[in-house]
Simulated scan of single mutants.
Amino acid sequence: MDPFLDKAFTGGSTVLPLITEIPKICVQGLGQKEVQDLKKEKFDLIILNLFFMDYCFLSFVHYFKIPFVYAHAGALTNPYYDTIGSFNVPAISGNVYVMPEFPLTFKSKTEDHCFEHFVLCSQQSYIRTTRKTLEWPPKPGMPNVIHAGGAHIKAPRKLAQDLEDWVEGSGEEGFIFFSLGSALNPDFFPEEYRQILVKVFGSLKQKVLWKWNKETMPDLPKNVKLQKWLPQTDLLGHPKLKLFITHGGQLSTLEALYNGVPVIGIPIFSDQHTNMKIIESEGWGRAMELKKLDEHSFRILVQETLNNKT
């Protein structure tokens, strides 16, 4: 970090690690069984600790739909004013974490502004990567609309024995799950593209589970299994799954996100193109247009996605 920003963000103390770690700690704490069990209780009021904007516990306020109060033992600093709906004039008051010298100089005012901007960006960035709704970025709406992204997702269940045996047989290389959902009937799938997929899948070390409406195809590679219907959420939660190749539908991408599965999207129509653009921007998947599908580029895309540690 630049020495100037380092001083601005830390004030010679350990504030910076707190700022960057608090959102992660907050989300981890929220997921603890003892904390989640609080939802079984009844409360009339929630008192939240106002400490480095640990926003994730506001979810309890939304869950119980009861009043809440912030409690804070320290001095209010700039980002807190926005949180409580008040206002602040940093050019006059400075920031306790930056250790300003009074009267404030232009440099100290700049340091204070940098600190506030960094805090808000670091919090919002982490929350965006750990939470997902059907509406991002947020859009104005009325209270009779409730977005419930991922509400349909259940914890993965054990696969049917024959399918489990096939998956377990994939060894350390694991398997790839390929499904275009119901967006494109395989009977109408262009033959030239089917042949490309067959050639690429057949060249991989991984097994490939392909959702297809026919039981076989004449040039089916030995490492590829066809099946008309597959328990998608259970497969996406399987530890041997290495990659999900999808049409990029809303529910499929939410299920992949929930299970932490890397994605390659071949969008066909509607919101699928937008869903894949969002996934690419967030860094957990790649997209390829069907009309640009060719054997060389698709093989490279699959290998790069499989080997990308991020």
Rank of each mutant, 00 (worst) to 15 (best):
163 L>K: 08
158 K>D: 15
273 H>Y: 15
270 S>G: 05
243 L>P: 07
157 R>L: 10
300 I>C: 08
259 N>I: 04
86 S>E: 07
169 G>C: 04
101 E>W: 05
18 L>S: 04
274 T>A: 15
2 D>E: 11
160 A>D: 15
188 F>K: 14
274 T>R: 15
192 E>F: 08
289 E>V: 09
69 V>C: 11
210 W>E: 09
215 E>L: 09
126 Y>I: 09
258 Y>R: 13
54 D>L: 00
215 E>I: 02
9 F>H: 14
131 R>P: 00
184 L>S: 12
149 G>L: 09
278 I>D: 11
223 N>M: 05
128 R>L: 04
157 R>W: 05
246 T>E: 05
215 E>H: 02
59 S>A: 09
48 L>N: 04
43 F>C: 08
281 S>L: 12
233 T>I: 13
163 L>V: 08
157 R>C: 08
37 D>Q: 11
232 Q>C: 11
35 V>R: 03
31 G>Y: 01
237 G>T: 11
289 E>K: 15
12 G>L: 03
160 A>F: 10
126 Y>N: 02
96 V>F: 11
229 W>R: 08
183 A>Q: 13
42 K>P: 01
287 A>D: 10
236 L>T: 10
47 I>Q: 06
20 T>G: 04
210 W>I: 06
200 V>M: 12
194 R>E: 11
205 K>T: 14
65 K>P: 00
111 E>T: 02
48 L>F: 03
265 G>S: 05
216 T>S: 15
34 E>I: 05
68 F>R: 05
56 C>R: 04
109 K>L: 03
21 E>Y: 02
10 T>I: 03
47 I>A: 10
2 D>V: 05
172 E>R: 12
14 T>K: 10
107 K>P: 00
132 K>V: 00
19 I>H: 01
280 E>C: 13
1 M>I: 15
257 L>H: 06
231 P>N: 12
307 N>S: 15
256 A>K: 01
2 D>Q: 07
275 N>C: 11
20 T>N: 07
83 T>G: 00
214 K>E: 11
185 N>W: 09
134 L>M: 05
233 T>M: 13
107 K>N: 02
54 D>C: 13
153 I>L: 12
12 G>P: 07
154 K>S: 15
199 K>V: 00
40 K>Y: 02
32 Q>H: 10
142 M>G: 06
204 L>S: 11
26 C>G: 12
41 E>N: 13
118 F>K: 03
266 I>G: 08
159 L>F: 00
150 G>P: 07
48 L>D: 00
162 D>C: 06
235 L>V: 07
69 V>M: 14
85 G>R: 04
287 A>E: 13
206 Q>S: 10
176 I>F: 06
113 H>Q: 05
186 P>D: 09
25 I>S: 01
42 K>T: 07
161 Q>H: 10
108 S>M: 13
291 K>F: 10
5 L>E: 06
274 T>M: 15
205 K>W: 11
104 L>P: 02
165 D>W: 01
35 V>I: 14
215 E>F: 01
296 H>C: 14
171 G>T: 00
44 D>E: 11
156 P>S: 06
239 P>C: 01
120 L>H: 07
281 S>Q: 14
160 A>Y: 07
79 P>Y: 00
180 L>P: 03
274 T>N: 14
199 K>G: 01
175 F>D: 03
